Amino acid sequence: MRLFIATALLGSALIAAPVAAQHHDHAMPAEPAAPVDHAAMGHGPMGHAAAPSPGPEMETPPPPEAGSGPPRAADAIWGEAAMRASREELQRTHGDFPVFWFQGDRFETQVRDGQAGYLWDLQGYQGGPTSRFWFKSEGEGTFGEALEDAEIQALYSRAIAPYWDFQAGVRQDVAGPATTHAVIGVQGLAPYMFEVDAALFLSHRGDVTARIEAEVDQRITQRLILQPRAELSLSAQDIPQLGMGAGIDKIELGVRLRYELKREFAPYVGIEQSWRLGGSADLARAKGEDPSATNFVAGIRFWF
């Protein structure tokens, strides 16, 4: 009996010892944490880790025969002649094919000083992405009177930079004094989406003139578009038969508001102010014309 009691007391002591030790540990105050050395910590972009060091440079350069093979790997397997037809077909079906485009940029009626007139400004091209045949035509007049100005241009156009073409060709005036001009110019898209068309003309009489046009579309809604436009004409000498004086011949500033019923068809209204300057203004007054004119316009813009 005494042996049984002693054994029971010993077992109870063994079971209670870990529990007491556990309660003793919770009662003990925690040791203070070691101070953190913030200066030693990195400040990389991920988790403030230190930025990785750049990799080692190449110890040995590539062998001399590297890159000495054909410029296209397929040529080494199938031969250049066999692959040429495949490359031509790829270019033909992925952008390098002729396209026809035509646009009536301005096709309008103008009202000024109680008289109604008309104006057209058409252009288009036929060709691929880098070389094209480009044609242009402009003209204006007053209803019931003879045609005042009209011209046709036939140009070869070649891409010289992204969004820019160099153009060269011939211009024929078909109203007023018959005049043929050689033409060189550039046409393209300037920063901030300004469409620019600049050309230099040399007539068969040796007269040198130039014209710069610029316009930009300011989209108000998906269909309503405001288009400011400017045009500057210049001449290197007086040309009385064309009504042009040396220097700045004419400045035109206008704005047109159009609504796209379809992307390809948009009626518009607007206002345009023009000034003849210098010798051109004197020649206009001598003919009984006002060198300054305000036009209220209405027309359509279309393309296909």
Results as ranks from 00 to 15, higher is better:
residue 169 G to R: 00
residue 78 W to S: 10
residue 112 R to E: 00
residue 114 G to W: 09
residue 275 W to N: 07
residue 104 G to V: 06
residue 127 G to C: 08
residue 80 E to P: 06
residue 127 G to K: 11
residue 92 R to Q: 15
residue 100 F to H: 11
residue 145 E to M: 01
residue 292 S to I: 03
residue 219 R to C: 14
residue 156 Y to L: 06
residue 223 R to Y: 01
residue 281 A to G: 05
residue 260 E to M: 07
residue 38 H to F: 03
residue 197 D to H: 10
residue 175 A to C: 09
residue 88 E to W: 06
residue 171 R to G: 12
residue 247 G to Q: 10
residue 12 S to T: 00
residue 279 G to N: 15
residue 129 P to I: 05
residue 167 Q to V: 05
residue 153 Q to K: 12
residue 174 V to D: 12
residue 245 G to T: 14
residue 229 R to T: 08
residue 79 G to Y: 12
residue 34 A to F: 03
residue 147 L to P: 09
residue 272 E to T: 09
residue 291 P to W: 02
residue 249 D to F: 05
residue 73 A to S: 14
residue 238 D to P: 14
residue 251 I to N: 04
residue 131 S to W: 02
residue 299 G to N: 09
residue 5 I to M: 01
residue 32 P to S: 03
residue 178 A to W: 14
residue 226 L to S: 11
residue 196 V to K: 08
residue 7 T to A: 11
residue 248 I to Y: 13
residue 246 A to Q: 14
residue 272 E to K: 10
residue 134 W to G: 10
residue 170 V to S: 03
residue 153 Q to C: 07
residue 14 L to R: 11
residue 195 E to G: 06
residue 223 R to I: 00
residue 202 L to P: 10
residue 2 R to V: 00
residue 300 I to L: 15
residue 282 D to I: 01
residue 185 G to P: 15
residue 186 V to Y: 02
residue 222 Q to C: 03
residue 121 D to G: 13
residue 145 E to H: 00
residue 45 P to M: 01
residue 180 T to V: 08
residue 14 L to D: 09
residue 75 D to M: 05
residue 239 I to E: 07
residue 53 S to H: 10
residue 234 L to H: 15
residue 80 E to A: 08
residue 283 L to I: 05
residue 167 Q to L: 01
residue 61 P to W: 08
residue 222 Q to R: 09
residue 172 Q to V: 03
residue 68 S to A: 05
residue 276 R to N: 06
residue 183 V to E: 04
residue 229 R to E: 03
residue 53 S to R: 11
residue 187 Q to L: 05
residue 122 L to K: 08
residue 78 W to F: 10
residue 281 A to E: 02
residue 261 L to D: 07
residue 45 P to V: 02
residue 210 A to E: 09
residue 175 A to Q: 07
residue 27 A to H: 08
residue 91 Q to T: 14
residue 181 H to Y: 04
residue 248 I to K: 07
residue 116 A to E: 06
residue 84 R to Y: 04
residue 258 R to G: 09
residue 248 I to H: 12
residue 40 A to P: 14
residue 187 Q to K: 12
residue 22 Q to C: 06
residue 223 R to E: 04
residue 88 E to M: 02
residue 123 Q to C: 02
residue 42 G to T: 02
residue 169 G to L: 02
residue 167 Q to C: 05
residue 204 H to I: 00
residue 96 D to K: 15
residue 275 W to A: 08
residue 233 S to Y: 15
residue 153 Q to D: 00
residue 246 A to W: 12
residue 101 W to F: 07
residue 245 G to P: 04
residue 213 E to T: 11
residue 132 R to F: 08
residue 121 D to S: 13
residue 233 S to I: 03
residue 236 A to R: 05
residue 52 P to D: 05
residue 154 A to Y: 15
residue 118 Y to H: 15
residue 167 Q to E: 07
residue 250 K to Y: 13
residue 79 G to Q: 15
residue 186 V to S: 15
residue 138 E to N: 10
residue 153 Q to Y: 13
residue 5 I to C: 00
residue 248 I to C: 03
residue 244 M to T: 08
residue 152 I to G: 10
residue 127 G to D: 02
residue 291 P to M: 00
residue 142 T to K: 12
residue 1 M to P: 09
residue 281 A to R: 15
residue 6 A to H: 12
residue 61 P to L: 08
residue 213 E to F: 10
residue 196 V to M: 11
residue 147 L to H: 11
residue 32 P to F: 04
